Amino acid sequence: MVELGLWYIVPAENQPLGEAMTYWMEARLDVARVDQRKKWFCGAACSEMILEHFALEIDQATAYEQIHDRERFKVERLYSDPQGIVDYLNAMNDSTEMIDVIDITSQNDSEVLDDIYRVLFAFQTPVALLALGGAHWVVVDGVRYRDDLDGRRQYAGFYIQNPWKGSTPSVWIEVDEFSSRWVQPNQFGQRWLGKIVLVATPRGRRKLSNLKLTRSELLPPTGERQAPKDVALKELAALGFENMQEISGGGALVLRPVEVLNEDDGTRFQIVPIDAVLNREFSDFVYVCINDGNQRVLEISGMSEQLDIPSDVEALERFNQVFPNEEITIDPDIYWRARLGAVSKTDVYRKARVNSDDFFLLRDGTILRELEINPSVGG
Rank of each mutant, 00 (worst) to 15 (best):
R296N: 05
D331G: 05
D308R: 01
R318V: 13
R296E: 14
I328L: 10
I309R: 01
I300C: 01
L298P: 12
F319Q: 10
F319C: 04
S301V: 11
E317Y: 10
N325V: 10
E326L: 02
E299M: 01
G293N: 09
I300R: 03
D312Q: 01
I309P: 01
F323H: 01
D308S: 04
M303Q: 10
V297G: 00
Q295N: 11
I330A: 04
F319I: 00
E327P: 13
E305I: 08
Q306C: 14
V313Q: 07
S311D: 00
D308E: 08
E305N: 11
S311T: 03
V297K: 04
Q306W: 14
L307P: 02
I309Y: 03
E299W: 02
D333L: 05
F323M: 03
R318H: 14
L316G: 07
Q321M: 12
E314D: 10
I309C: 03
D308C: 07
D333A: 08
S304N: 11
V322I: 15
E305H: 12
P324A: 02
Q321S: 13
T329V: 15
I300L: 01
P310K: 09
L316D: 07
P310Q: 00
P310V: 05
S301Q: 06
T329N: 15
V322Q: 15
R318Q: 11
I334K: 00
I300F: 08
N294L: 12
M303H: 05
D312L: 01
E327H: 02
Q295F: 07
D333M: 07
E326K: 12
F319S: 08
Q321R: 15
P332G: 15
I300V: 12
N325D: 06
E327W: 06
N325R: 11
Q295A: 14
L307I: 04
S301A: 09
V313T: 09
I300H: 02
S301N: 14
L316I: 10
D331C: 00
N325H: 10
V313S: 08
S311L: 05
I334W: 00
L298W: 05
I309F: 00
Q321E: 14
P324Q: 01
I330Y: 02
V297C: 06
P310D: 06
P310N: 03
A315W: 02
P310L: 00
A315V: 01
N325W: 04
P324S: 01
L298R: 07
G293D: 10
R318D: 14
G293V: 15
V297I: 09
I300E: 00
G302Y: 06
I328V: 05
E317R: 14
T329G: 08
N294V: 15
G293E: 10
E305M: 12
L298K: 06
E305W: 02
L316R: 05
Q306K: 15
I334N: 02
R296F: 08
E317C: 14
L298C: 05
E314G: 13
L298G: 09
T329W: 14
V297E: 10
E327F: 13
D312H: 05
S311R: 07
V313R: 12
V297S: 07
T329P: 13
M303T: 11
Q295Y: 05
G302S: 01
G293P: 02
F319H: 00
R296K: 12
F323V: 00
D312K: 07
T329M: 14
